[in-house]
Amino acid sequence: MHNHNYRYFMLNNLAIESAVRAAEKKTGLDFGHKEPAPSDQDESYYPQFSAQVREEAERMARNYVLFYSLENSIRDLIVDVLSEKHGEDWWSVTGVVPDVVTKSAEGNQKKESGTGVTVRSDRLIDYTNFGELGEIIKSNWEDFGSILRDKRAVERILANLNTLRASIAHCTALATDEEVRLHLSLRDWFRQQA
């Protein structure tokens, strides 16, 4: 079994866990997935926010976990596939990463290094955004064709997910329908795995 298959298995489990937690909350039953108690530091700050904002934040946190897992599993898939096909230094191989993606990642890395914060990674792929990951896959479809079923379907799924990502990444609540769409899009992504 390929390394990326394990990641998909784990991401699928996260989606199931999220659904179980939602069912617990909706039914009031306890299936053994209790949230950890907040730390003392949290308790000193949280009461300053309205109950509505805190409840919305908790709901959106589950969506963040799902999307974080998805986005990073796609990064790992890209690294695994392109390392296997083009060698460990695949990022530097001419034509593998679109120039616009390389320039964007390098710019993001340079901007971050100038802020004085801890550098997030030494891999340029970690400085790409979600849409750029899709561009890397599209430009290397011949390398991903044995793993992903249909190029147009993958493009559509990633575009839908990128649209949903904006609310998650920028701390605005997803409407209930959009949370459903997120879960359906995750299922669509998994169905594309060959």
Rank of each mutant, 00 (worst) to 15 (best):
L148G: 05
C171A: 13
R165W: 00
F144N: 00
I136Y: 02
R187Y: 08
I147S: 01
E58Y: 03
S50P: 08
N140D: 03
K34H: 07
D177Y: 06
G95S: 13
I125Q: 01
V53A: 15
D126K: 06
K25V: 00
I147A: 03
A105I: 06
R181E: 13
A169V: 06
R21D: 05
A15G: 07
A19C: 11
A173T: 13
V119W: 00
M60E: 09
T128A: 06
H4E: 07
F144P: 04
V154K: 02
V117H: 13
L133E: 04
S83L: 00
A194L: 10
H4N: 02
R181W: 13
K26F: 01
S39P: 07
L11A: 14
A153R: 10
M60P: 00
E88C: 00
H183E: 08
P36I: 09
F49K: 07
E43T: 12
K26L: 11
E17Q: 12
R191D: 08
N162E: 12
E84P: 01
G145Y: 09
E58G: 09
S69A: 15
T163H: 12
N63E: 10
L182H: 12
L82K: 05
N108V: 02
P36Q: 09
R191Q: 09
P38K: 06
S44Y: 11
D143I: 00
D122F: 11
K26D: 00
H33A: 15
S185K: 07
P38E: 02
G95W: 06
S69V: 06
R21N: 10
A37R: 14
V119F: 01
R149W: 03
L148R: 00
L182A: 10
R181Q: 13
L11Q: 12
K138C: 00
K25M: 07
H170A: 05
V93T: 11
D188T: 08
R165N: 05
E179T: 04
Q109D: 04
A61L: 11
H2G: 01
V79A: 14
A22F: 05
I78E: 05
L82P: 01
A57Q: 14
T128G: 02
D126S: 07
I16F: 15
S44D: 08
E112K: 08
M60G: 03
S44P: 00
I157Q: 03
V117P: 00
N5A: 15
L66F: 03
G134T: 06
M60D: 03
L158V: 14
A175T: 04
E179R: 08
T176A: 07
D99A: 12
Q48V: 06
D143R: 03
